[in-house]
Write a protein that binds this DNA or RNA. Structure first.
Length: 406
RNA sequence: GGGUCGGUGCCCGAGUGGUUAAUGGGGGCGGACUGUAAAUCCGCUGGCUACGCCUACGCUAGUUCGAAUCUAGCCCGGCCCA
């Protein structure tokens, strides 16, 4: 994007990877998004599709969502599409994982938790700014005649040109035929909701372009594509994803979120500021450590409020120094369900600080577990009653804490 | 449908009858260090309220005192041919 961006549209272009079509010198409203925005008489319909295959939403999902919010604030209509139909079929993209079919109930549940988690980001209140649609409203109604019509708009060669497919084809990883239907179904969503703009990650370019083709095919004005970068994960190298474990979930408690963010690797720090906050990039602190703290504070504020963010910042500072006076910011774990006498490793496991009791044993042996700041190394240390534990902070590693309560 | 090669723990990948959760690498987790991290060094890496018991090498039956390793059938995938 070499065009100079008018300041009135800086919100639109912050952190954007690509806009298409983008004839920067064109005054035609169907080729230039800024012209389109200027000349339109009505709020634009801005589409964003989400995939309710998992219950967890993370910061990587949030960046397109934040852009959607920016459109809402500019007076446009966010059309959030829940891909419940596509999810029910099961997206086999990527590995030859078990292509588990989700049940209707699972999808509905996931969709609801998804909406709960993005609640802090989007404007749910203002009338006319949000439209939530499910693609099961229209996709199951397509009969084979219609499906053939969709299929006939594309060639195998065009499909195989898609990044993921091309790659898998050369690596001899299986590609199933119904996967070819995915871009078409997603594209048809754009037709169904008459989208003016579709948001998505850069990996969505192909699918969004298919949407344009289909809209044209059905006599609609093709949508604009607005691509946001793929957020890198907390490892600073691979894209943020749950399966890689390098993610920060929107539903995580404030302390966990903060302690993950405050160690954001330097290489992605600026990107995080650009994509996850509204802070002007010229005004960041010099010291990288201060930047990390500011980032953590900003982001946690978005999801938990300013007061909680500040409290948790203070707590994180003290906790790593072994100061337990800040224990009130720590999530609580009730000992009520524990049978005493109980051994230390069981407590660590039961409180979910570790994934299981075997893991808990190892962590204790590795010296990762502390109680009230004191390192515990005896796996079989037994507590006969819960009484001495009440109010104490149990810790595993540097940023997993739990306060034991009745 | 035919031919052929192959399916091992989170991933890749050794192993081809025998104390053994199964070499090695990656990743992950933890410890030390540091600006928290990264880099580096070190440790851990199937599960289980555990000095014992489960479950593991595509699935199911066999052969064996004993199999991830041998046999048969089945399932799944790659490539070539149709």
């Amino acid at each position: 994007m070499t065009q100079t961006i008018p300041s009135e549209f800086s919100w639109l272009y912050r952190g954007i990877s690509e806009v298409f079509p983008d004839q920067s010198d064109s005054l035609a409203a169907d080729e230039n998004l800024i012209q389109h925005l200027r000349q339109t008489e009505r709020p634009l319909r801005v589409k964003l599709g989400i995939d309710p295959t998992a219950a967890d939403v993370h910061l990587g999902h949030s960046i397109a969502m934040r852009k959607l919010r920016a459109f809402q604030d500019a007076g446009h209509t966010a059309v959030l599409i829940i891909g419940d139909f596509t999810a029910r079929i099961g997206d086999p993209t990527g590995k030859s994982e078990a292509r588990r079919q989700l049940t209707i109930q699972e999808v509905a549940h996931n969709a609801q938790t998804y909406l709960d988690q993005v609640h802090p980001i989007l404007d749910f209140e203002t009338l006319g700014r949000l439209e939530i649609r499910y693609n099961s409203e229209w996709l199951p109604m397509l009969d084979l005649t219609k499906v053939l019509e969709l299929l006939a708009t594309m060639t195998v060669g065009q499909m195989l040109a898609k990044e993921g497919f091309a790659d898998r084809h050369t690596r001899e990883v299986p590609i199933y035929l119904h996967e070819f239907l995915y871009p078409l179904m997603q594209g048809y969503d754009s037709v169904a909701v008459q989208a003016d703009v579709e948001l998505g990650g850069t990996d969505q370019k192909f699918n969004i372009a298919v949407g344009r083709d289909l809209q044209r095919h059905f006599g609609q004005q093709p949508q604009f594509g607005l691509l946001v970068p793929i957020l890198l994960g907390t490892d600073g190298s691979q894209k943020m994803s749950k399966s890689l474990g390098n993610y920060i979930g929107l539903a995580e408690d404030a302390l966990t979120m903060y302690s993950k963010l405050e160690k954001t690797p330097d290489v992605v720090l600026t990107q995080y500021f650009e994509l996850l906050t509204d802070r002007p990039l010229e005004q960041l602190p010099e010291n990288p450590r201060d930047r990390q703290k500011l980032l953590a504070l900003d982001v946690v504020t978005q999801y938990h409020g300013e007061a909680a963010a500040k409290q948790v910042q203070q707590a994180a500072l003290s906790l790593v120094q072994g100061d337990m006076t800040q224990a009130d910011a720590v999530p609580e774990f009730s000992l009520a369900s524990i049978q005493f006498p109980a051994k230390l490793f069981y407590l660590v496991s039961a409180s979910k600080l570790c994934s299981g009791s075997s893991e808990a044993r190892r962590q204790i042996q590795n010296g990762a577990v502390r109680l009230e700041g004191d390192r515990m190394t005896d796996v079989n240390l037994t507590f006969d009653t819960p009484d001495p534990l009440y109010g104490q902070v149990l810790q595993c590693g540097k940023n997993k804490f739990v306060r034991l309560v009745p």
